[in-house]
Amino acid sequence: MIVVRENIYLRLIAVFAPLSLLSLGGGQSIVADINQQAVAIHGWVTQSEFVDLFAMSRAAPGPGALLTTLIGWKVAGFFGAVVASLALFVPSSLLAYGATIAWSRHHRHPWHRTAERGLAPVATGLILASAFSVLRASSSTWMIWGLATVALIIFLARPRLNPLFVLFAAGLLNAAPSLIF
């Protein structure tokens, strides 16, 4: 039994450590990859469970990558949660630390601004891929897609608007049909 646990811990590290290094733009940028790994490749959770874990990770205070912790917990209990969390946070933290030192040291070089402008669309694309992955995995009703489209339009028009207002309104609108009938 211990061999099985060690194996699952190594698999958690093998999945989440490389994703850690790809998480440009934060934890949201790798949700699509986490979904692929946890559901399709390893079968740790079902698609429905993944959506539920994603919702819990978004509702709970703390980092957006709490989803990884919840998957680790589901797969291997407390130690699975710890291993998955460390596998996601340690590599990217070390990379960020090293990059910050290099970035500060070379901030006057011409490539600095070019790299900065080039990374913004990469992070945006990764976050959009994650959003579409979660939308596809949800109930996929016209109401969900319509609410997501309206939220996108609102955020494009008012980028500094607190997202909690939009999420609350969308939740009320989504729940309204079941409350009325």
Rank of each mutant, 00 (worst) to 15 (best):
A115Q: 15
I153R: 04
T124E: 00
M143F: 05
L161T: 14
T114N: 08
L147N: 13
A81H: 06
S93Q: 08
V51Q: 02
S139T: 14
P163E: 04
F168T: 13
P121F: 06
E6C: 02
W142C: 00
L94P: 14
I144P: 08
R58S: 05
A115K: 15
A157G: 02
S140K: 07
V75E: 05
A120D: 03
I153P: 02
Q28F: 14
A151S: 07
I154G: 03
I154E: 01
V3K: 15
A60V: 10
V45L: 09
M56F: 12
I153D: 03
P177N: 05
I71S: 01
W111N: 11
I101A: 13
L10R: 11
H106V: 09
T46P: 14
M143Y: 05
L172H: 07
S138D: 10
S92T: 12
T149Y: 00
P61T: 12
W103A: 00
Y97T: 13
V150N: 02
V83I: 11
P121A: 01
I2W: 06
S23F: 07
V45G: 09
P159Q: 04
V134I: 14
F181E: 13
A59H: 09
V90K: 10
I41Y: 11
A32M: 04
G125S: 03
M143K: 08
M1R: 11
W103E: 00
L12P: 09
V150I: 09
V122Y: 06
A59G: 13
L164Q: 08
P163L: 05
A169M: 03
I101W: 15
A115H: 12
L86S: 00
S85F: 10
T114M: 10
G62S: 04
R58C: 01
F89I: 15
A84V: 10
L179M: 12
L119T: 12
V83Y: 04
I154Y: 02
H112V: 04
G64Y: 10
S29H: 12
N35V: 02
W142A: 00
G27F: 07
R158A: 02
L53Q: 12
W73Q: 13
N162L: 14
L172G: 03
A169F: 07
M143E: 09
I8V: 12
W44Q: 01
I144H: 10
W103Y: 11
M56S: 03
R108N: 12
F79P: 02
P61H: 09
S138N: 06
